[in-house]
Design a protein around this nucleic acid. Sequence first.
DNA 1: GAGCATAGGTGTACGTCGTACACTTGTCAA
DNA 2: TTGACAAGTGTACGACGTACACCTATGCTC
Lengths: 220, 220
Amino acid sequence: MTQRTKTPRTRLSRARVLQAAVELADETGLDGFSMRGLAQELGVVPMALYKHVANKEELLDGMVDIVFAEMDSPSAGEDWRSALRGRAISAREALKRHSWAIGRMESRHPGPANLRHHNATMGCLREAGFSFEMAIHAYSVQDAYIYGFALQERDLGFETPQSAGEAAQRRAETVGTPDDYPYLVEVVTRLPETGYDPALEFAWGLDLILDGLEQLRGKA
Amino acid sequence: MTQRTKTPRTRLSRARVLQAAVELADETGLDGFSMRGLAQELGVVPMALYKHVANKEELLDGMVDIVFAEMDSPSAGEDWRSALRGRAISAREALKRHSWAIGRMESRHPGPANLRHHNATMGCLREAGFSFEMAIHAYSVQDAYIYGFALQERDLGFETPQSAGEAAQRRAETVGTPDDYPYLVEVVTRLPETGYDPALEFAWGLDLILDGLEQLRGKA
DNA sequence: GAGCATAGGTGTACGTCGTACACTTGTCAA
DNA sequence: TTGACAAGTGTACGACGTACACCTATGCTC
Protein backbone atom coordinates (compact mmCIF):
# COMPACT_ATOMS: atom_id res chain seq x y z
CA MET A 1 0.00 0.00 0.00
CA THR A 2 2.87 2.31 0.54
CA GLN A 3 3.60 2.52 -3.14
CA ARG A 4 0.39 1.50 -4.80
CA THR A 5 -0.74 4.98 -5.77
CA LYS A 6 2.71 6.25 -6.52
CA THR A 7 3.24 7.29 -10.11
CA PRO A 8 5.92 4.99 -11.49
CA ARG A 9 7.97 8.06 -12.48
CA THR A 10 10.44 6.96 -15.10
CA ARG A 11 13.89 6.95 -13.65
CA LEU A 12 16.37 9.66 -14.35
CA SER A 13 19.26 9.10 -16.70
CA ARG A 14 21.97 11.32 -18.06
CA ALA A 15 20.21 11.43 -21.41
CA ARG A 16 16.90 12.45 -19.85
CA VAL A 17 18.56 15.12 -17.77
CA LEU A 18 20.37 16.56 -20.79
CA GLN A 19 17.27 16.51 -22.94
CA ALA A 20 15.16 18.26 -20.34
CA ALA A 21 17.95 20.74 -19.73
CA VAL A 22 18.08 21.72 -23.39
CA GLU A 23 14.34 22.22 -23.51
CA LEU A 24 14.30 24.25 -20.34
CA ALA A 25 17.18 26.43 -21.46
CA ASP A 26 15.42 27.01 -24.78
CA GLU A 27 12.44 28.34 -22.87
CA THR A 28 14.08 30.29 -20.10
CA GLY A 29 17.36 31.41 -21.61
CA LEU A 30 20.68 30.87 -19.93
CA ASP A 31 20.04 33.38 -17.16
CA GLY A 32 16.80 31.81 -16.05
CA PHE A 33 18.25 28.32 -16.26
CA SER A 34 19.13 26.81 -12.90
CA MET A 35 19.83 23.38 -11.47
CA ARG A 36 16.92 23.87 -9.14
CA GLY A 37 14.56 24.77 -11.94
CA LEU A 38 15.67 21.79 -13.97
CA ALA A 39 15.16 19.49 -11.01
CA GLN A 40 11.66 20.83 -10.54
CA GLU A 41 10.91 20.30 -14.21
CA LEU A 42 11.93 16.68 -13.79
CA GLY A 43 9.90 16.26 -10.61
CA VAL A 44 12.96 15.57 -8.57
CA VAL A 45 14.99 17.15 -5.80
CA PRO A 46 17.94 19.32 -7.00
CA MET A 47 20.64 17.03 -5.66
CA ALA A 48 19.26 14.10 -7.63
CA LEU A 49 20.75 15.65 -10.76
CA TYR A 50 24.24 15.25 -9.37
CA LYS A 51 23.96 11.51 -9.68
CA HIS A 52 23.97 11.99 -13.45
CA VAL A 53 26.06 15.08 -14.08
CA ALA A 54 29.15 16.22 -12.22
CA ASN A 55 28.09 19.86 -11.93
CA LYS A 56 26.43 22.64 -13.89
CA GLU A 57 29.45 23.25 -16.07
CA GLU A 58 29.62 19.66 -17.17
CA LEU A 59 25.88 19.64 -17.71
CA LEU A 60 26.24 22.58 -20.08
CA ASP A 61 29.00 20.77 -21.95
CA GLY A 62 26.64 17.87 -22.47
CA MET A 63 23.87 20.17 -23.64
CA VAL A 64 26.20 21.79 -26.14
CA ASP A 65 26.99 18.42 -27.63
CA ILE A 66 23.28 17.92 -28.30
CA VAL A 67 23.34 21.15 -30.27
CA PHE A 68 26.31 19.87 -32.29
CA ALA A 69 24.38 16.69 -32.98
CA GLU A 70 21.61 18.76 -34.53
CA MET A 71 23.95 20.30 -37.10
CA ASP A 72 24.42 18.65 -40.47
CA SER A 73 27.94 17.44 -41.07
CA PRO A 74 29.43 17.26 -44.55
CA SER A 75 29.31 13.69 -45.79
CA ALA A 76 32.00 12.09 -47.90
CA GLY A 77 31.67 12.46 -51.63
CA GLU A 78 29.46 15.53 -51.49
CA ASP A 79 30.44 18.61 -53.49
CA TRP A 80 32.59 20.60 -51.09
CA ARG A 81 30.92 23.91 -51.60
CA SER A 82 27.35 22.83 -51.15
CA ALA A 83 28.39 20.58 -48.27
CA LEU A 84 29.99 23.47 -46.42
CA ARG A 85 27.15 25.79 -47.31
CA GLY A 86 24.63 23.34 -45.95
CA ARG A 87 26.45 22.71 -42.74
CA ALA A 88 26.86 26.44 -42.12
CA ILE A 89 23.18 27.10 -42.66
CA SER A 90 22.13 24.24 -40.42
CA ALA A 91 24.62 25.40 -37.80
CA ARG A 92 23.08 28.84 -37.74
CA GLU A 93 19.63 27.34 -37.45
CA ALA A 94 20.66 25.15 -34.54
CA LEU A 95 22.22 28.13 -32.80
CA LYS A 96 19.07 30.10 -33.37
CA ARG A 97 16.99 27.36 -31.77
CA HIS A 98 19.39 27.12 -28.83
CA SER A 99 20.75 30.58 -28.42
CA TRP A 100 21.98 29.85 -24.89
CA ALA A 101 24.67 27.71 -26.52
CA ILE A 102 26.21 30.51 -28.52
CA GLY A 103 29.11 31.49 -26.31
CA ARG A 104 29.76 27.92 -25.21
CA MET A 105 30.19 25.80 -28.31
CA GLU A 106 33.93 25.44 -28.09
CA SER A 107 34.55 24.62 -24.48
CA ARG A 108 37.54 22.86 -23.08
CA HIS A 109 35.70 19.54 -23.08
CA PRO A 110 34.32 18.77 -26.52
CA GLY A 111 31.82 15.94 -26.76
CA PRO A 112 31.63 13.21 -29.41
CA ALA A 113 29.20 15.08 -31.68
CA ASN A 114 31.51 18.09 -31.60
CA LEU A 115 34.48 15.97 -32.61
CA ARG A 116 32.55 14.19 -35.35
CA HIS A 117 31.32 17.48 -36.75
CA HIS A 118 34.71 19.14 -36.79
CA ASN A 119 36.36 16.07 -38.21
CA ALA A 120 33.83 15.83 -41.02
CA THR A 121 34.13 19.51 -41.85
CA MET A 122 37.90 19.47 -41.83
CA GLY A 123 37.81 16.31 -43.91
CA CYS A 124 35.58 17.98 -46.46
CA LEU A 125 38.08 20.79 -46.89
CA ARG A 126 41.09 18.51 -47.20
CA GLU A 127 39.37 16.21 -49.68
CA ALA A 128 38.33 19.22 -51.71
CA GLY A 129 41.96 19.95 -52.33
CA PHE A 130 42.73 22.62 -49.78
CA SER A 131 46.24 22.43 -48.41
CA PHE A 132 46.57 21.91 -44.69
CA GLU A 133 47.37 25.56 -44.03
CA MET A 134 44.60 26.69 -46.33
CA ALA A 135 42.10 24.35 -44.72
CA ILE A 136 42.91 25.79 -41.30
CA HIS A 137 42.38 29.29 -42.64
CA ALA A 138 39.17 28.29 -44.34
CA TYR A 139 37.84 26.62 -41.24
CA SER A 140 38.70 29.57 -39.09
CA VAL A 141 36.89 32.14 -41.24
CA GLN A 142 33.80 30.04 -41.61
CA ASP A 143 33.37 29.19 -37.96
CA ALA A 144 34.13 32.70 -36.86
CA TYR A 145 31.51 33.95 -39.26
CA ILE A 146 28.91 31.40 -38.17
CA TYR A 147 29.36 31.97 -34.45
CA GLY A 148 29.65 35.71 -34.84
CA PHE A 149 26.56 35.97 -36.96
CA ALA A 150 24.58 33.91 -34.48
CA LEU A 151 25.82 36.14 -31.70
CA GLN A 152 24.81 39.33 -33.47
CA GLU A 153 21.47 37.93 -34.39
CA ARG A 154 20.78 37.05 -30.79
CA ASP A 155 22.03 40.29 -29.25
CA LEU A 156 20.58 42.68 -31.78
CA GLY A 157 17.26 40.91 -31.52
CA PHE A 158 16.68 40.26 -35.21
CA GLU A 159 13.89 37.78 -35.51
CA THR A 160 11.62 38.76 -38.34
CA PRO A 161 11.87 41.54 -40.90
CA GLN A 162 9.57 43.67 -38.77
CA SER A 163 11.43 43.15 -35.52
CA ALA A 164 14.65 44.08 -37.27
CA GLY A 165 13.02 47.43 -37.87
CA GLU A 166 11.83 47.59 -34.30
CA ALA A 167 15.28 46.77 -32.97
CA ALA A 168 16.71 49.52 -35.12
CA GLN A 169 14.01 51.87 -33.90
CA ARG A 170 14.79 51.04 -30.29
CA ARG A 171 18.39 52.01 -30.86
CA ALA A 172 17.26 55.15 -32.55
CA GLU A 173 15.63 56.35 -29.39
CA THR A 174 18.89 56.01 -27.52
CA VAL A 175 20.61 58.13 -30.09
CA GLY A 176 19.18 61.32 -28.70
CA THR A 177 20.76 63.80 -31.06
CA PRO A 178 20.28 62.37 -34.52
CA ASP A 179 22.58 64.88 -36.15
CA ASP A 180 25.55 63.27 -34.47
CA TYR A 181 24.87 59.91 -36.06
CA PRO A 182 23.63 60.53 -39.58
CA TYR A 183 24.58 57.12 -40.89
CA LEU A 184 22.86 55.33 -38.06
CA VAL A 185 19.77 57.38 -38.72
CA GLU A 186 19.85 56.15 -42.28
CA VAL A 187 20.03 52.57 -41.08
CA VAL A 188 17.18 53.06 -38.68
CA THR A 189 14.92 54.69 -41.23
CA ARG A 190 15.73 52.63 -44.31
CA LEU A 191 16.21 49.17 -42.85
CA PRO A 192 12.54 48.54 -42.07
CA GLU A 193 11.49 49.31 -45.62
CA THR A 194 14.00 46.94 -47.21
CA GLY A 195 12.47 43.84 -45.59
CA TYR A 196 15.57 42.61 -43.80
CA ASP A 197 15.77 38.83 -43.54
CA PRO A 198 18.45 37.33 -41.27
CA ALA A 199 18.56 34.06 -43.18
CA LEU A 200 19.28 35.88 -46.43
CA GLU A 201 21.76 38.15 -44.73
CA PHE A 202 23.59 35.12 -43.39
CA ALA A 203 23.66 33.45 -46.78
CA TRP A 204 25.01 36.62 -48.40
CA GLY A 205 28.06 36.74 -46.16
CA LEU A 206 28.51 33.01 -46.36
CA ASP A 207 28.61 33.09 -50.14
CA LEU A 208 31.07 35.94 -50.08
CA ILE A 209 33.37 33.81 -47.98
CA LEU A 210 32.87 30.67 -50.02
CA ASP A 211 33.56 32.60 -53.23
CA GLY A 212 36.80 33.78 -51.73
CA LEU A 213 37.76 30.28 -50.67
CA GLU A 214 36.98 28.81 -54.06
CA GLN A 215 39.66 30.93 -55.63
CA LEU A 216 42.23 29.70 -53.16
CA ARG A 217 41.49 26.01 -53.43
CA GLY A 218 44.50 24.03 -54.49
CA LYS A 219 46.90 26.88 -53.77
CA ALA A 220 49.71 26.79 -51.23
CA MET B 1 39.70 63.78 15.93
CA THR B 2 37.08 61.51 14.57
CA GLN B 3 38.32 61.93 11.04
CA ARG B 4 41.90 63.10 11.45
CA THR B 5 43.53 59.79 10.66
CA LYS B 6 40.99 58.78 8.09
CA THR B 7 42.40 58.40 4.62
CA PRO B 8 40.71 61.02 2.47
CA ARG B 9 39.54 58.27 0.12
CA THR B 10 38.66 59.88 -3.18
CA ARG B 11 34.96 59.83 -3.69
CA LEU B 12 33.28 57.37 -5.91
CA SER B 13 31.90 58.38 -9.27
CA ARG B 14 30.32 56.50 -12.11
CA ALA B 15 33.53 56.80 -14.10
CA ARG B 16 35.66 55.46 -11.27
CA VAL B 17 33.31 52.56 -10.74
CA LEU B 18 33.31 51.68 -14.43
CA GLN B 19 37.07 51.94 -14.71
CA ALA B 20 37.67 49.74 -11.70
CA ALA B 21 35.06 47.31 -12.94
CA VAL B 22 36.82 46.90 -16.27
CA GLU B 23 40.14 46.28 -14.57
CA LEU B 24 38.68 43.79 -12.16
CA ALA B 25 36.83 41.92 -14.89
CA ASP B 26 40.04 41.78 -16.92
CA GLU B 27 41.73 40.07 -14.00
CA THR B 28 39.03 37.76 -12.75
CA GLY B 29 36.98 37.03 -15.84
CA LEU B 30 33.25 37.43 -15.98
CA ASP B 31 32.55 34.49 -13.69
CA GLY B 32 34.72 35.76 -10.90
CA PHE B 33 33.42 39.28 -11.27
CA SER B 34 30.90 40.31 -8.60
CA MET B 35 29.44 43.51 -7.25
CA ARG B 36 30.82 42.58 -3.87
CA GLY B 37 34.29 42.01 -5.22
CA LEU B 38 34.22 45.31 -7.05
CA ALA B 39 33.08 47.12 -3.91
CA GLN B 40 35.94 45.59 -1.97
CA GLU B 41 38.39 46.63 -4.65
CA LEU B 42 37.14 50.20 -4.26
CA GLY B 43 37.29 50.04 -0.48
CA VAL B 44 33.60 50.52 -0.15
CA VAL B 45 30.54 48.60 0.95
CA PRO B 46 28.68 46.76 -1.84
CA MET B 47 25.57 48.91 -1.72
CA ALA B 48 27.60 52.06 -2.27
CA LEU B 49 27.94 51.07 -5.92
CA TYR B 50 24.23 51.37 -6.42
CA LYS B 51 24.42 55.11 -5.99
CA HIS B 52 26.34 55.20 -9.28
CA VAL B 53 24.96 52.33 -11.34
CA ALA B 54 21.42 51.04 -11.46
CA ASN B 55 22.36 47.37 -11.22
CA LYS B 56 24.87 44.85 -12.49
CA GLU B 57 23.39 44.69 -15.95
CA GLU B 58 23.62 48.42 -16.44
CA LEU B 59 27.14 48.37 -15.02
CA LEU B 60 28.14 45.85 -17.66
CA ASP B 61 26.61 48.02 -20.36
CA GLY B 62 28.78 50.87 -19.19
CA MET B 63 31.86 48.68 -19.14
CA VAL B 64 31.17 47.57 -22.68
CA ASP B 65 31.10 51.14 -23.84
CA ILE B 66 34.60 51.58 -22.47
CA VAL B 67 35.69 48.72 -24.68
CA PHE B 68 34.08 50.41 -27.68
CA ALA B 69 35.95 53.56 -26.82
CA GLU B 70 39.22 51.66 -27.08
CA MET B 71 38.55 50.64 -30.66
CA ASP B 72 39.77 52.80 -33.51
CA SER B 73 36.97 54.23 -35.60
CA PRO B 74 37.40 55.02 -39.28
CA SER B 75 37.96 58.74 -39.72
CA ALA B 76 36.62 60.76 -42.62
CA GLY B 77 38.78 60.93 -45.69
CA GLU B 78 40.76 57.80 -44.94
CA ASP B 79 41.04 55.11 -47.61
CA TRP B 80 38.07 52.87 -46.94
CA ARG B 81 39.91 49.60 -47.05
CA SER B 82 42.73 50.46 -44.70
CA ALA B 83 40.29 52.28 -42.43
CA LEU B 84 38.12 49.20 -42.11
CA ARG B 85 41.10 46.94 -41.79
CA GLY B 86 42.51 49.04 -39.00
CA ARG B 87 39.30 49.24 -37.07
CA ALA B 88 38.79 45.47 -37.34
CA ILE B 89 42.27 44.75 -36.05
CA SER B 90 41.95 47.17 -33.18
CA ALA B 91 38.52 45.75 -32.38
CA ARG B 92 39.99 42.28 -32.08
CA GLU B 93 42.76 43.56 -29.86
CA ALA B 94 40.31 45.33 -27.58
CA LEU B 95 38.22 42.18 -27.31
CA LYS B 96 41.32 40.20 -26.53
CA ARG B 97 42.19 42.54 -23.69
CA HIS B 98 38.64 42.45 -22.37
CA SER B 99 37.40 39.01 -23.22
CA TRP B 100 34.55 39.22 -20.73
CA ALA B 101 32.94 41.69 -23.12
CA ILE B 102 32.74 39.32 -26.03
CA GLY B 103 29.17 38.11 -25.77
CA ARG B 104 27.90 41.48 -24.58
CA MET B 105 28.99 44.07 -27.13
CA GLU B 106 25.63 44.56 -28.77
CA SER B 107 23.24 44.83 -25.88
CA ARG B 108 19.88 46.48 -25.93
CA HIS B 109 21.34 49.68 -24.49
CA PRO B 110 24.23 50.92 -26.61
CA GLY B 111 26.38 53.64 -25.12
CA PRO B 112 27.75 56.72 -26.86
CA ALA B 113 31.06 55.15 -27.86
CA ASN B 114 29.15 52.28 -29.41
CA LEU B 115 27.00 54.65 -31.45
CA ARG B 116 29.97 56.74 -32.53
CA HIS B 117 31.87 53.66 -33.60
CA HIS B 118 29.03 52.17 -35.60
CA ASN B 119 28.18 55.50 -37.16
CA ALA B 120 31.76 56.06 -38.25
CA THR B 121 32.08 52.57 -39.67
CA MET B 122 28.81 52.76 -41.54
CA GLY B 123 29.79 56.19 -42.79
CA CYS B 124 33.07 54.85 -44.09
CA LEU B 125 31.24 52.25 -46.15
CA ARG B 126 28.70 54.66 -47.56
CA GLU B 127 31.31 57.25 -48.46
CA ALA B 128 33.37 54.55 -50.12
CA GLY B 129 30.56 54.07 -52.59
CA PHE B 130 28.75 51.08 -51.22
CA SER B 131 25.02 51.20 -51.78
CA PHE B 132 22.84 51.15 -48.69
CA GLU B 133 21.97 47.48 -49.08
CA MET B 134 25.57 46.59 -49.83
CA ALA B 135 26.82 48.57 -46.85
CA ILE B 136 24.46 46.66 -44.57
CA HIS B 137 25.75 43.38 -45.97
CA ALA B 138 29.33 44.51 -45.67
CA TYR B 139 28.87 45.63 -42.10
CA SER B 140 27.17 42.42 -41.15
CA VAL B 141 29.93 40.13 -42.47
CA GLN B 142 32.68 42.12 -40.92
CA ASP B 143 31.21 42.40 -37.46
CA ALA B 144 30.13 38.78 -37.44
CA TYR B 145 33.66 37.80 -38.35
CA ILE B 146 35.25 40.05 -35.74
CA TYR B 147 33.03 38.93 -32.89
CA GLY B 148 33.13 35.31 -33.94
CA PHE B 149 36.88 35.26 -34.23
CA ALA B 150 37.26 36.82 -30.80
CA LEU B 151 34.89 34.24 -29.40
CA GLN B 152 36.78 31.32 -30.89
CA GLU B 153 40.07 32.71 -29.79
CA ARG B 154 38.83 32.98 -26.23
CA ASP B 155 37.12 29.60 -26.06
CA LEU B 156 39.72 27.57 -27.86
CA GLY B 157 42.40 29.13 -25.71
CA PHE B 158 44.70 30.32 -28.46
CA GLU B 159 47.15 32.71 -26.93
CA THR B 160 50.57 32.07 -28.35
CA PRO B 161 51.76 29.74 -31.09
CA GLN B 162 52.76 27.22 -28.44
CA SER B 163 49.51 27.31 -26.56
CA ALA B 164 47.63 26.81 -29.79
CA GLY B 165 49.48 23.53 -30.02
CA GLU B 166 48.74 22.76 -26.41
CA ALA B 167 45.05 23.50 -26.87
CA ALA B 168 45.00 21.18 -29.82
CA GLN B 169 46.83 18.58 -27.79
CA ARG B 170 44.34 18.86 -24.97
CA ARG B 171 41.53 18.16 -27.38
CA ALA B 172 43.47 15.27 -28.77
CA GLU B 173 43.37 13.52 -25.45
CA THR B 174 39.61 13.69 -25.42
CA VAL B 175 39.47 12.06 -28.80
CA GLY B 176 40.14 8.64 -27.40
CA THR B 177 40.06 6.61 -30.59
CA PRO B 178 42.15 8.54 -33.06
CA ASP B 179 41.09 6.40 -35.99
CA ASP B 180 37.62 7.87 -35.81
CA TYR B 181 38.86 11.41 -36.30
CA PRO B 182 41.72 11.28 -38.78
CA TYR B 183 41.40 14.89 -39.85
CA LEU B 184 41.40 16.15 -36.29
CA VAL B 185 44.48 14.10 -35.63
CA GLU B 186 46.14 15.87 -38.51
CA VAL B 187 45.24 19.23 -37.02
CA VAL B 188 46.55 18.23 -33.63
CA THR B 189 49.82 16.93 -34.92
CA ARG B 190 50.58 19.47 -37.63
CA LEU B 191 49.30 22.68 -36.09
CA PRO B 192 52.06 23.03 -33.50
CA GLU B 193 54.78 22.77 -36.12
CA THR B 194 53.31 25.46 -38.36
CA GLY B 195 53.70 28.21 -35.74
CA TYR B 196 50.08 29.27 -35.57
CA ASP B 197 49.62 32.99 -34.86
CA PRO B 198 46.11 34.23 -34.06
CA ALA B 199 46.82 37.76 -35.23
CA LEU B 200 47.91 36.50 -38.64
CA GLU B 201 45.01 34.10 -38.80
CA PHE B 202 42.63 36.96 -38.09
CA ALA B 203 44.17 39.13 -40.76
CA TRP B 204 43.96 36.32 -43.30
CA GLY B 205 40.22 35.97 -42.96
CA LEU B 206 39.75 39.70 -42.76
CA ASP B 207 41.58 40.21 -46.05
CA LEU B 208 39.54 37.49 -47.67
CA ILE B 209 36.40 39.36 -46.70
CA LEU B 210 37.74 42.77 -47.71
CA ASP B 211 38.83 41.38 -51.09
CA GLY B 212 35.31 40.12 -51.61
CA LEU B 213 33.81 43.45 -50.65
CA GLU B 214 36.12 45.39 -52.92
CA GLN B 215 34.67 43.64 -55.92
CA LEU B 216 31.16 44.60 -54.91
CA ARG B 217 31.80 48.22 -54.21
CA GLY B 218 29.60 50.47 -56.33
CA LYS B 219 27.30 47.64 -57.34
CA ALA B 220 23.59 47.46 -56.58
C1' DG C 1 12.37 -16.49 -2.58
C1' DA C 2 16.29 -14.22 0.89
C1' DG C 3 19.93 -11.32 1.49
C1' DC C 4 22.55 -7.71 0.28
C1' DA C 5 25.56 -4.49 -2.41
C1' DT C 6 25.06 -0.62 -5.06
C1' DA C 7 22.96 2.98 -7.72
C1' DG C 8 19.37 6.37 -7.43
C1' DG C 9 16.93 9.81 -4.84
C1' DT C 10 16.36 12.85 -0.45
C1' DG C 11 16.99 16.57 3.26
C1' DT C 12 19.60 19.69 5.38
C1' DA C 13 22.91 23.06 5.38
C1' DC C 14 26.60 26.43 3.91
C1' DG C 15 28.67 30.10 1.48
C1' DT C 16 27.99 33.37 -2.32
C1' DC C 17 25.45 36.24 -5.01
C1' DG C 18 22.41 40.62 -6.35
C1' DT C 19 20.00 44.08 -4.27
C1' DA C 20 15.75 46.30 -1.39
C1' DC C 21 15.23 49.37 2.33
C1' DA C 22 16.09 52.24 6.11
C1' DC C 23 19.83 54.55 8.25
C1' DT C 24 23.88 57.77 8.98
C1' DT C 25 27.36 60.83 7.33
C1' DG C 26 29.47 64.23 4.38
C1' DT C 27 29.20 68.40 1.31
C1' DC C 28 27.94 72.61 -0.33
C1' DA C 29 24.51 76.58 -1.28
C1' DA C 30 22.09 80.06 0.94
C1' DT D 1 25.18 78.26 10.57
C1' DT D 2 21.94 75.60 8.62
C1' DG D 3 19.56 72.49 6.22
C1' DA D 4 18.81 69.90 1.96
C1' DC D 5 20.54 66.58 -0.94
C1' DA D 6 24.05 63.29 -2.32
C1' DA D 7 27.12 59.63 -0.90
C1' DG D 8 28.09 55.76 1.83
C1' DT D 9 26.51 52.07 5.47
C1' DG D 10 24.24 47.92 7.73
C1' DT D 11 21.10 44.57 7.80
C1' DA D 12 18.37 41.39 5.64
C1' DC D 13 16.13 38.34 2.07
C1' DG D 14 15.58 35.09 -1.46
C1' DA D 15 17.98 32.53 -5.11
C1' DC D 16 21.73 30.03 -6.45
C1' DG D 17 25.33 25.82 -6.77
C1' DT D 18 26.54 21.97 -4.33
C1' DA D 19 28.88 19.15 -0.08
C1' DC D 20 27.56 15.52 2.88
C1' DA D 21 25.04 12.19 5.31
C1' DC D 22 21.15 9.70 4.90
C1' DC D 23 17.39 6.65 3.08
C1' DT D 24 15.41 3.39 -0.51
C1' DA D 25 14.63 0.85 -4.55
C1' DT D 26 16.79 -2.45 -7.89
C1' DG D 27 18.75 -6.35 -9.38
C1' DC D 28 22.41 -10.13 -8.60
C1' DT D 29 23.82 -14.23 -6.12
C1' DC D 30 22.69 -18.25 -3.69
